[in-house]
Design a protein around this nucleic acid. Structure first.
Lengths: 341, 341
DNA sequence: TTGTAAGCGTTATCAG
DNA sequence: CTGATAACGCTTACAA
């Protein structure tokens, strides 16, 4: 006779025996007590308490074919933007039966494809993807897969399933308009890590300036490196050393803006008088700088939180809601770095 | 006859049939191919390729009693320090069979206790904990549990199992010594979120100054709030508005240092001439600031990476190694903010 | 070295 | 509304 170890914990069968019911009823009780008679509900509830029973998610996953894992794909761990999103996700998932499984695409589409099919193979309960530019192959794979998919941090009319984010083009446009209103005429831009979202900001910057007849391609300072304050300083130095003149700089990330600002300080260029500076994301330190730095505020925490909330609705609510596009917006936080006197 | 859906994927039995071997051999092949004859190895390997077989971790976890989950407890998602650690952890775990499961203690010991027993109930493959000040109850629970436990980011002689980190007291001491060498005599400190590690830095600061006969309790500016540049500015303002005089400030976090620096700028206080500033952690932007800011460099990424590597060694290597204390050190990065002429 | 079959703890199917 | 029982895909004890 083969004997195996067992976990030592109480199982559904122990509960069934204790409550003098079938194990099936205990299973049902766990899913939805109301399908049972009140009598059974009481017995089972009592037995569960007495035995301190906790269901085993592994067994549940194996039997049901579905895991309780919500997969999350982000392109980077270093970027504060994603820490904030993860915080929102974790907060929203807390207290639910679901677990978060994070994977890092490193801004690489091939890696993203690989991870998506890996996740799909594990039958996750839902998937959260960063951005809206997944490969055709991944889109096909995910459509009609039966589990919710949320794309975050960007905007599109054609989501795989749901999308929560905001328009990076519009945000860039609002920055340019603000700078013009403040009297800045020649606006340079500094960008790093040209991912989808930065690229869209750049597109918004170009479109808006073209419409204002103020576009000058020699005022774009781009780098493929990861965004950082040091890179911001370097790019700002390049810009200032260049031939073209400009009186404001739109930095597509806050750390770049901070670096650009420091470069101005090092050169004795007065901000905002001789140089306007705008960042993107409104990290906490932008408000602390002196002069304080104008930025686009994005609600990363809320994006993460809502992503999970929509998923839960979608799962619990049964049939999918009609709404699939959620624009969470952004706001321009005007500070000293663009307040020319 | 009861028929169930199945996942549609190839199972271990499909592989066994295809390779014309017993399913046990396939299972063995997955664990350690070398225990099988070369003939079987080839057949199974071929069948796995042909069927594109991927083992199901849920079934594996259920049957073996052990999940492939490495649990990670961190006190915060907002702090860059932990993003870096998580990056190291994720990088190190990539390509292995293990999964990371993150939980947030929110700097709360009761919550930490709760999460630890939750994790223990799930039989994780290993656990990574932040700091060395777990409750007695949790320590007892984890000792002799049979899976590796790594405490990170601090130092102790009495770890639960293994510990990877550095001495915060020593780091603080080296800062004070540096400031004295640079001619600073009255050294204030600014601290936020008084968690274990910050508290130890404070202890190091006090001890060292007492030994130098330069301790002045009126020069400590502490706050229970979360660390931020804005808080750094506020605390620095309080300090400067206070009655006591000081010529340098040791900020226990880099964002505080940045805020303190901006407050000096706002008041026209010259750094480093009239005020020396030192931070802690050496975030990237410290090097970009003008003047650049002195800080203690800590290798967070490496801590996370090594934590996983030690765990893997411990699991694969079978019996535990004798080494359990790993001091990863720190280094003082001297920059302009403490270079008095 | 290899195979057989019992079990891991749950859910799904079917019959009552 | 309730309960047997097979099945989920894998590991492991034991036998060969």
């Amino acid at each position: 006779m083969v004997k195996r170890q067992g976990s030592g914990r109480a199982t559904i069968n122990d509960v069934a025996r204790q409550a003098e019911v079938g194990s099936t009823s205990v299973s049902r009780f766990l899913r939805d007590p109301s399908v049972l008679s009140v009598k059974l509900q009481k017995k089972i509830s009592k037995a569960i308490d007495e035995l301190n029973y906790i269901p085993d998610p592994k067994a549940r996953a194996l039997a049901s074919g579905y895991s309780n894992v919500i997969g999350v794909l982000i392109p980077s761990f270093s970027n504060i933007v994603f820490s904030d999103i993860l915080r929102g996700i974790h907060d929203a998932v807390e207290g639910t039966a679901y677990q978060i499984q994070i994977a890092n695409t490193r801004y690489d589409t091939a890696e993203e494809d690989r991870l998506i099919s890996l996740f799909v193979g594990q039958k996750p309960r839902a998937l959260i993807l960063t951005g809206v530019d997944q490969s055709i192959r991944s889109r096909e794979l995910l459509k009609e897969r039966g589990f919710p998919v949320v794309q975050i941090l960007d905007k599109t009319d054609d989501p795989i399933d749901m999308v929560i984010g905001f328009s990076h083009e519009q945000a860039a446009t609002s920055v340019i308009q603000h700078l013009f209103e403040r009297g800045y005429k020649k606006i340079a831009c500094i960008a790093a890590r040209m991912d989808e979202r930065v690229t869209r900001r750049l597109a918004g910057y170009r479109d808006c300036l073209r419409k204002l007849n103020a576009y000058d391609s020699s005022l774009e300072f781009l780098s493929a490196e990861a965004s950082s304050a040091q890179l911001g300083r370097k790019l700002m130095a390049d810009a200032l050393d260049g031939k073209s003149d400009f009186d404001a700089v739109f930095c597509f990330n806050d750390d770049l803006a901070l670096g650009a600002f420091f470069e101005c300080q090092a050169r004795g260029i007065s901000v905002p008088q001789d140089m306007g500076i705008v960042g993107f994301n409104d990290l906490e330190m932008m408000a602390a700088a002196y002069p304080s730095l104008t930025s686009i505020r994005t609600n990363r925490y809320e994006i993460g939180k809502q992503a999970v909330e929509r998923i839960l609705q979608s799962i619990e609510g049964g049939h999918r809601k009609n709404e699939r596009l959620f624009d969470i917006g952004f706001s321009l936080i005007e500070r000293q770095s663009t307040q020319r006197k």
